[in-house]
Design a protein around this nucleic acid. Structure first.
Lengths: 148, 148
DNA sequence: CTTTGTGCAAATTCTTTGCACCAAA
DNA sequence: TTTGGTGCAAAGAATTTGCACAAAG
């Protein structure tokens, strides 16, 4: 049986991410690929700072400006959606399918909610606006905060 | 026919606002009454700065800190809802009934949307979270921006 | 070479905090 | 008096901007 060397596995994932960026017409630089790979592997709706903090140990020259630039580009190209659910910081979601979010008012974490009726994501009739997007955000207390 | 003097009208409105605050157990100071009166008369989901800029000409000693304090209190008492729809600034809505909002990506203005199916404001089943609130936010281009 | 991307430092904006003074009960 | 409200100035945090250097084609 042939065992795939670990570095090849890593290369394969990076290659996948590289190709994923190309699907959105994003030129895959080292930094952009690292940011997208982090988003794909960590579905935690991270803030800019969380992304920067996670990547900078392995990428000491990375700057926060680049993380800002990268996410602006990803949003512009439709590869990620920016969430308004957190009033303090912008949060980013690599899952661009129609789904809702829940924010815990105690710990501040943002979770996906996939069991919201898909019908809710339809746009209402309007002669005043050209509606292009919808965001459905719930808030309250998550179970792990409720226990404490 | 008896014409109500204009200053009486103003007094009457301030008195109404005063009593409105009392309904939410908010002690009606001069500043709080002015802020609430502005919110009731201007359903534009204003930012802190918009409220401050509107009131300060007639209330030169008003400070932005007081506007912040006042709106924190209003939200805490349930008299207004804070909107997360605008990533740049907090916006406040004195209409606490269940309705949706639309933000124009061009001019940044936020509008009410009253024709969204009330069913959409129901909370989904969840054993992970105690859901307490929902915000439905649409975005796109408003008609006056589309024309220009 | 020319264009595009990155990263540092500074600037800007929004919000919060500490504290002193003022006002109402 | 005592409590709570207001307002100034400073601090803090998130984001944006200007510009020089690096990388890619």
């Amino acid at each position: 049986m042939y065992l795939q060397p670990i570095h090849t596995k890593i290369m394969n994932q990076t290659l996948q991410t590289h190709n994923y960026l190309l699907k959105f017409s994003i030129k895959p630089s080292v930094q952009r690929t690292a940011v997208m790979e982090f988003l794909l592997n960590n579905r935690i709706h991270p803030t800019i700072d969380e992304i920067y903090m996670a990547l900078s140990p392995n990428m000491p020259t990375l700057s926060k400006t680049t993380v800002y630039n990268t996410l602006d580009l990803f949003v512009e190209k439709g590869a990620v959606q920016a969430l308004a659910i957190d009033e303090k910081n912008a949060r980013y979601d690599v899952d661009i399918s129609k789904h809702a979010h829940f924010r815990c008012n105690s710990c501040g974490k943002v979770f996906d909610l996939f069991n919201v009726n898909p019908e809710y994501f339809q746009f209402p009739e309007s002669d005043k606006f050209k509606i292009q997007a919808v965001e459905i955000s719930y808030s309250g207390i998550c179970n792990s905060c409720k226990e404490n």
